[in-house]
Design a protein around this nucleic acid. Structure first.
Length: 253
DNA sequence: ATGGTCGTGTGACGA
Protein backbone atom coordinates (compact mmCIF):
# COMPACT_ATOMS: atom_id res chain seq x y z
CA UNK A 1 0.00 0.00 0.00
CA UNK A 2 1.42 3.35 -1.11
CA UNK A 3 0.63 6.28 1.20
CA UNK A 4 1.67 9.86 0.46
CA UNK A 5 1.65 13.18 2.32
CA UNK A 6 1.75 16.53 0.53
CA UNK A 7 1.17 20.11 1.66
CA UNK A 8 -0.44 21.54 -1.49
CA UNK A 9 -0.73 25.21 -0.36
CA UNK A 10 -4.36 25.68 -1.54
CA UNK A 11 -6.39 22.89 -3.17
CA UNK A 12 -8.06 25.44 -5.45
CA UNK A 13 -4.74 26.69 -6.80
CA UNK A 14 -3.27 23.16 -6.99
CA UNK A 15 -6.19 21.02 -8.20
CA UNK A 16 -4.54 20.19 -11.54
CA UNK A 17 -1.27 19.39 -9.74
CA UNK A 18 -2.99 16.95 -7.38
CA UNK A 19 -4.90 15.23 -10.21
CA UNK A 20 -1.70 14.95 -12.25
CA UNK A 21 0.12 13.50 -9.23
CA UNK A 22 -2.64 10.88 -8.74
CA UNK A 23 -2.60 9.92 -12.42
CA UNK A 24 1.19 9.59 -12.60
CA UNK A 25 1.79 7.92 -9.21
CA UNK A 26 -1.45 6.11 -8.37
CA UNK A 27 -1.10 6.15 -4.56
CA UNK A 28 -3.58 4.17 -2.47
CA UNK A 29 -3.87 7.05 -0.02
CA UNK A 30 -2.94 10.72 -0.52
CA UNK A 31 -3.05 12.96 2.56
CA UNK A 32 -3.00 16.66 1.73
CA UNK A 33 -2.64 19.74 3.92
CA UNK A 34 -3.24 23.51 3.66
CA UNK A 35 -6.43 23.35 1.62
CA UNK A 36 -6.96 27.07 2.41
CA UNK A 37 -10.69 27.22 1.84
CA UNK A 38 -14.12 25.99 2.94
CA UNK A 39 -14.94 24.21 -0.33
CA UNK A 40 -13.33 20.86 -1.13
CA UNK A 41 -13.79 19.54 -4.72
CA UNK A 42 -14.62 15.95 -3.74
CA UNK A 43 -16.32 15.13 -7.08
CA UNK A 44 -13.09 15.90 -8.95
CA UNK A 45 -11.52 12.89 -7.23
CA UNK A 46 -14.60 10.65 -7.09
CA UNK A 47 -14.83 10.70 -10.90
CA UNK A 48 -11.31 9.24 -11.10
CA UNK A 49 -11.99 6.46 -8.59
CA UNK A 50 -11.05 7.98 -5.23
CA UNK A 51 -12.98 8.40 -1.99
CA UNK A 52 -12.37 11.62 -0.06
CA UNK A 53 -12.86 13.11 3.38
CA UNK A 54 -11.94 16.69 4.25
CA UNK A 55 -11.81 18.93 7.32
CA UNK A 56 -11.90 22.57 6.20
CA UNK A 57 -12.25 26.15 7.35
CA UNK A 58 -12.41 29.52 5.59
CA UNK A 59 -9.09 30.79 4.14
CA UNK A 60 -6.70 28.86 6.39
CA UNK A 61 -5.43 25.38 7.21
CA UNK A 62 -7.51 22.36 6.16
CA UNK A 63 -6.62 18.65 5.71
CA UNK A 64 -8.05 15.91 3.50
CA UNK A 65 -7.61 12.23 2.73
CA UNK A 66 -7.97 10.98 -0.86
CA UNK A 67 -8.12 7.16 -0.96
CA UNK A 68 -8.78 4.26 -3.32
CA UNK A 69 -10.25 2.40 -0.33
CA UNK A 70 -13.29 3.56 1.69
CA UNK A 71 -12.54 5.97 4.55
CA UNK A 72 -14.04 5.45 8.02
CA UNK A 73 -13.56 8.68 9.99
CA UNK A 74 -12.51 8.17 13.63
CA UNK A 75 -11.78 11.81 14.60
CA UNK A 76 -11.98 15.15 12.76
CA UNK A 77 -10.21 17.19 15.44
CA UNK A 78 -7.44 16.72 17.94
CA UNK A 79 -8.95 16.01 21.40
CA UNK A 80 -8.54 18.01 24.63
CA UNK A 81 -9.49 21.54 23.52
CA UNK A 82 -13.10 22.17 22.51
CA UNK A 83 -12.31 25.83 21.77
CA UNK A 84 -9.78 24.94 19.02
CA UNK A 85 -11.54 25.63 15.69
CA UNK A 86 -8.50 25.18 13.43
CA UNK A 87 -8.80 22.44 10.75
CA UNK A 88 -5.56 20.55 11.28
CA UNK A 89 -6.34 16.92 12.15
CA UNK A 90 -8.11 13.94 10.59
CA UNK A 91 -7.92 10.32 11.78
CA UNK A 92 -9.44 7.38 9.89
CA UNK A 93 -9.44 3.64 9.34
CA UNK A 94 -8.49 2.75 5.76
CA UNK A 95 -8.05 -0.78 4.45
CA UNK A 96 -7.54 -2.06 8.02
CA UNK A 97 -4.98 0.59 8.98
CA UNK A 98 -5.31 3.58 11.33
CA UNK A 99 -4.15 6.63 9.39
CA UNK A 100 -3.71 10.18 10.74
CA UNK A 101 -3.15 13.31 8.65
CA UNK A 102 -1.94 16.48 10.40
CA UNK A 103 -1.11 20.08 9.62
CA UNK A 104 0.85 20.99 12.73
CA UNK A 105 0.86 24.74 13.57
CA UNK A 106 3.77 26.78 12.19
CA UNK A 107 4.18 28.71 15.45
CA UNK A 108 6.10 31.77 14.26
CA UNK A 109 6.91 34.30 15.53
CA UNK A 110 8.60 33.21 18.75
CA UNK A 111 8.03 33.84 21.50
CA UNK A 112 4.31 34.57 21.42
CA UNK A 113 0.78 33.22 21.41
CA UNK A 114 1.23 31.39 18.10
CA UNK A 115 4.22 29.51 19.48
CA UNK A 116 2.33 28.73 22.69
CA UNK A 117 -0.45 27.27 20.52
CA UNK A 118 2.06 25.14 18.60
CA UNK A 119 3.54 23.67 21.78
CA UNK A 120 0.12 23.00 23.33
CA UNK A 121 -1.00 21.38 20.05
CA UNK A 122 2.07 19.13 20.15
CA UNK A 123 1.29 18.20 23.77
CA UNK A 124 -2.28 17.27 22.76
CA UNK A 125 -0.89 15.25 19.82
CA UNK A 126 1.45 13.41 22.21
CA UNK A 127 -1.53 12.59 24.42
CA UNK A 128 -3.59 11.25 21.49
CA UNK A 129 -0.73 9.12 20.11
CA UNK A 130 0.07 7.79 23.60
CA UNK A 131 -3.55 6.65 23.92
CA UNK A 132 -3.26 4.74 20.62
CA UNK A 133 0.03 3.19 21.79
CA UNK A 134 -1.45 2.24 25.18
CA UNK A 135 -4.42 0.63 23.40
CA UNK A 136 -2.15 -1.30 21.00
CA UNK A 137 -3.71 0.38 17.97
CA UNK A 138 -1.12 0.32 15.16
CA UNK A 139 -1.06 3.62 13.25
CA UNK A 140 0.60 5.72 10.59
CA UNK A 141 0.75 9.49 11.08
CA UNK A 142 1.84 11.74 8.24
CA UNK A 143 1.69 15.38 7.36
CA UNK A 144 3.30 18.78 7.58
CA UNK A 145 4.80 18.67 11.08
CA UNK A 146 6.44 22.11 10.76
CA UNK A 147 9.40 20.61 12.64
CA UNK A 148 13.00 20.08 11.54
CA UNK A 149 13.98 17.14 13.76
CA UNK A 150 17.76 17.60 13.52
CA UNK A 151 20.50 20.05 12.47
CA UNK A 152 21.00 18.14 9.23
CA UNK A 153 17.39 18.83 8.19
CA UNK A 154 18.37 22.37 7.14
CA UNK A 155 21.40 24.01 5.51
CA UNK A 156 22.45 26.46 8.29
CA UNK A 157 21.16 25.55 11.77
CA UNK A 158 22.44 28.85 13.15
CA UNK A 159 19.98 30.75 10.95
CA UNK A 160 17.05 28.80 12.45
CA UNK A 161 17.86 28.86 16.18
CA UNK A 162 14.95 31.16 17.13
CA UNK A 163 12.53 29.78 14.53
CA UNK A 164 9.42 27.92 15.70
CA UNK A 165 10.24 25.03 13.33
CA UNK A 166 13.64 24.46 14.93
CA UNK A 167 13.71 25.84 18.49
CA UNK A 168 14.90 23.48 21.22
CA UNK A 169 11.41 23.21 22.75
CA UNK A 170 9.98 22.23 19.34
CA UNK A 171 12.54 19.50 18.73
CA UNK A 172 12.12 18.22 22.30
CA UNK A 173 8.38 17.91 21.72
CA UNK A 174 9.03 16.05 18.45
CA UNK A 175 11.47 13.69 20.18
CA UNK A 176 8.86 12.94 22.83
CA UNK A 177 6.66 11.63 19.99
CA UNK A 178 9.56 9.49 18.74
CA UNK A 179 10.13 8.25 22.29
CA UNK A 180 6.65 6.73 22.34
CA UNK A 181 8.32 4.12 20.12
CA UNK A 182 7.59 5.71 16.74
CA UNK A 183 9.85 5.49 13.69
CA UNK A 184 10.70 8.45 11.41
CA UNK A 185 10.11 6.51 8.19
CA UNK A 186 12.41 8.62 6.02
CA UNK A 187 15.45 8.03 8.23
CA UNK A 188 15.11 4.23 8.00
CA UNK A 189 16.34 4.42 4.41
CA UNK A 190 18.22 7.72 4.09
CA UNK A 191 20.53 9.20 6.73
CA UNK A 192 22.02 11.92 4.56
CA UNK A 193 21.96 15.63 5.44
CA UNK A 194 19.97 18.22 3.50
CA UNK A 195 17.15 15.97 2.28
CA UNK A 196 14.38 18.52 1.96
CA UNK A 197 10.60 18.49 1.58
CA UNK A 198 10.00 22.29 1.50
CA UNK A 199 11.66 25.18 -0.30
CA UNK A 200 10.51 28.77 0.25
CA UNK A 201 9.15 30.65 -2.76
CA UNK A 202 11.49 33.54 -1.93
CA UNK A 203 15.11 34.29 -2.75
CA UNK A 204 15.58 31.41 -5.21
CA UNK A 205 15.48 28.81 -2.44
CA UNK A 206 14.46 26.00 -4.83
CA UNK A 207 17.12 26.86 -7.41
CA UNK A 208 19.77 26.98 -4.65
CA UNK A 209 18.39 23.84 -2.94
CA UNK A 210 18.08 25.82 0.27
CA UNK A 211 15.23 23.87 1.84
CA UNK A 212 14.12 22.21 5.06
CA UNK A 213 12.75 18.74 5.95
CA UNK A 214 9.46 19.31 7.79
CA UNK A 215 7.05 16.79 6.19
CA UNK A 216 7.18 13.39 7.88
CA UNK A 217 5.68 9.96 8.40
CA UNK A 218 5.90 8.43 11.89
CA UNK A 219 4.99 4.77 12.32
CA UNK A 220 4.06 2.76 15.39
CA UNK A 221 6.13 -0.46 15.82
CA UNK A 222 3.77 -2.88 14.04
CA UNK A 223 3.55 -0.52 11.05
CA UNK A 224 7.31 0.16 11.09
CA UNK A 225 7.87 -3.60 10.68
CA UNK A 226 5.81 -3.44 7.46
CA UNK A 227 7.59 -0.38 6.02
CA UNK A 228 9.37 -1.18 2.74
CA UNK A 229 10.22 2.28 1.36
CA UNK A 230 10.13 6.01 2.10
CA UNK A 231 11.19 8.66 -0.38
CA UNK A 232 10.75 12.37 -0.98
CA UNK A 233 9.52 12.92 -4.54
CA UNK A 234 11.01 16.23 -5.67
CA UNK A 235 9.40 16.19 -9.12
CA UNK A 236 6.17 18.12 -8.29
CA UNK A 237 8.18 20.96 -6.71
CA UNK A 238 9.67 21.57 -10.16
CA UNK A 239 6.29 21.82 -11.93
CA UNK A 240 4.86 25.16 -13.09
CA UNK A 241 3.19 27.15 -10.27
CA UNK A 242 4.12 24.52 -7.67
CA UNK A 243 3.34 24.17 -3.99
CA UNK A 244 6.31 25.16 -1.81
CA UNK A 245 6.24 21.57 -0.44
CA UNK A 246 6.80 18.30 -2.30
CA UNK A 247 5.29 14.83 -1.58
CA UNK A 248 6.77 12.30 0.84
CA UNK A 249 5.88 8.71 -0.09
CA UNK A 250 5.87 5.45 1.90
CA UNK A 251 5.12 1.86 0.97
CA UNK A 252 3.64 -0.58 3.51
CA UNK A 253 3.80 -4.34 2.87
C1' DA B 1 19.80 42.69 0.43
C1' DT B 2 15.85 45.93 7.05
C1' DG B 3 14.18 42.78 0.67
C1' DG B 4 12.38 38.78 -1.47
C1' DT B 5 7.02 35.20 -3.01
C1' DC B 6 2.80 33.10 -2.77
C1' DG B 7 -2.57 32.40 -1.48
C1' DT B 8 -6.99 33.94 0.33
C1' DG B 9 -10.50 37.03 -0.78
C1' DT B 10 -10.51 41.88 -1.90
C1' DG B 11 -7.83 43.63 4.08
C1' DA B 12 -4.32 42.18 6.23
C1' DC B 13 -2.50 38.24 7.45
C1' DG B 14 -0.32 33.66 7.34
C1' DA B 15 3.52 30.86 5.73
Amino acid sequence: MKIVSWNVNSIKARLDHVKRYLEENSPDVLMIQELKGLDFPAEEFETIGYHTSAVTQKAYNGVAIISKHPIEIILDKLPDDDTDEQARYIEANINGARVINIYLPNGNPTPGSKYDYKLSWMARLYSRLKTLCDNDTPFIIGGDFNVMPEDKDCHSPKDWEQDALFRTETREAFRSLINLGLTDAFRVFNNRAEQYSFWDYQAGAWQKDNGIRIDHFLLSPVMADKLTSCTINKTPRGWNKPSDHTPIEITIA
